[in-house]
Simulated scan of single mutants.
Amino acid sequence: MAVDTSFYKSFMSEEIRDEGRAEGRAEGRDKGLAEGLARGLLLIFEVRGIAVTDKIREKITNCGDPQLLNQWLQRATTASSAEEVFAEE
């Protein structure tokens, strides 16, 4: 008994695969951007001599929202403490 594999070669199947690839690339870009912003934020704290608790470090490294990380990064450039960066939340 032969299995019908025509669906896997169809236009619809190609479209579904292309959509999945695009979603995967977008997720990868967002993840990479978030990781880069998190590293940048921690670097700013380090260069400015601002102490970062393990709890704050974990909050930063576990955040996957590039927009939120960018807000924190902007605040970190003028904040006098790491806690000040997160005070508005």
Score class of each variant (00 low, 15 high):
M1E: 15
A2G: 07
D4Q: 10
D4H: 09
T5R: 15
S6N: 13
F7N: 05
Y8W: 08
Y8R: 02
K9S: 06
K9P: 03
F11P: 02
F11I: 01
M12Y: 12
M12D: 11
S13R: 00
S13P: 01
S13M: 00
E14A: 07
E14V: 00
E14T: 03
E15A: 11
E15M: 13
I16Y: 03
I16H: 02
R17E: 07
D18P: 07
D18E: 13
D18I: 08
E19S: 07
E19H: 06
E19Y: 12
G20M: 03
G20Y: 00
R21I: 11
R21Q: 13
A22S: 13
A22F: 14
E23Y: 04
E23R: 09
R25T: 10
A26Y: 04
G28D: 08
G28K: 05
G28E: 09
G28A: 14
R29F: 14
R29K: 15
D30M: 06
K31Q: 15
A34Y: 10
A34S: 10
G36K: 03
L37N: 03
L37Q: 08
R39S: 01
L42T: 02
I44M: 02
I44F: 01
I44D: 05
F45L: 01
E46H: 09
E46C: 01
E46D: 04
V47E: 11
G49Q: 11
A51E: 15
D54R: 04
D54E: 12
K55F: 08
I56C: 00
N62Q: 12
N62Y: 03
N62C: 11
C63I: 06
G64M: 14
G64E: 15
D65R: 09
Q67E: 15
L68N: 08
W72T: 02
W72M: 04
L73I: 04
R75L: 14
A76I: 08
T77E: 10
S81W: 12
S81T: 12
F86K: 05
F86S: 10
E88R: 12
E88L: 09
E89M: 11
E89D: 12
